[in-house]
Structure formats: C-alpha cells, structure tokens
C-alpha cells in the first residue's frame, strides 16, 4: 500500500503539473482539495481519467470522486479494492 501511495503522489505531480511540489511534501492524509494541495475542478476531472486509464476504474457517478479524492490514503484504499489493471 505504501508503494501505491508513493506511486499516486508521483502521478499527481506529473498529471496535474504540480511543478513546485515534491513527493515528500504530500502527506498521506493531507486534503487534496481546498486548503491542502489546492486542486481545482479540472484536477478532479483529470483524476477521474487517471483512475480509468491507469487502474481500469470507471466511476458510475462523477460525484463519487469527491469522497475518493479526499486524500492519498483514501485514494490508495479505493484503488486497491477496485482496480482491474
């Protein structure tokens, strides 16, 4: 699981162009949206694509994303349970 969390942090930085952020700066339980990493609505949509493209998870309702993308820990948990690739 720790490995998946690290992998997610790297992907987030790459996919969401968080140039000024280092992997070590993202805490496992830091909120990704709002005050945390400061992600916005486009980032949320981009994460939905990431789930599908890299882990074969297609959300039935995009609104589910809000809970899943709460933090790296929550995301990693969700992916490990639902991944198809």
């Amino acid at each position: 699981m720790a490995e998946l969390r690290e992998e997610l942090k790297e992907k987030l930085i790459e996919q969401l162009s968080l140039e000024d952020v280092e992997v070590s700066e993202i805490g496992d339980n830091d909120p990704l949206f709002g005050d945390g990493l400061g992600l916005d609505s486009i980032d949320a949509l981009e994460l939905i694509v990431l789930l599908e493209k890299d882990y074969g998870i297609k959300l039935k309702d995009p609104k589910e994303g809000k809970a899943i993308f709460e933090s790296i820990s929550v995301m990693a948990d969700y992916i490990s349970k639902h991944r198809t690739k």
Binding site: I42, L45, E46, V49
Partner: peptide
C-alpha cells in the same frame, strides 16, 4: 481513447 480535461480546456 482517453481525452484529458486539462488538455481540452
């Protein structure tokens, strides 16, 4: 087929 919202915008 994975269009990216961050690109499309």
């Amino acid at each position: 087929f994975y269009p990216s919202p961050a690109v499309f915008v």
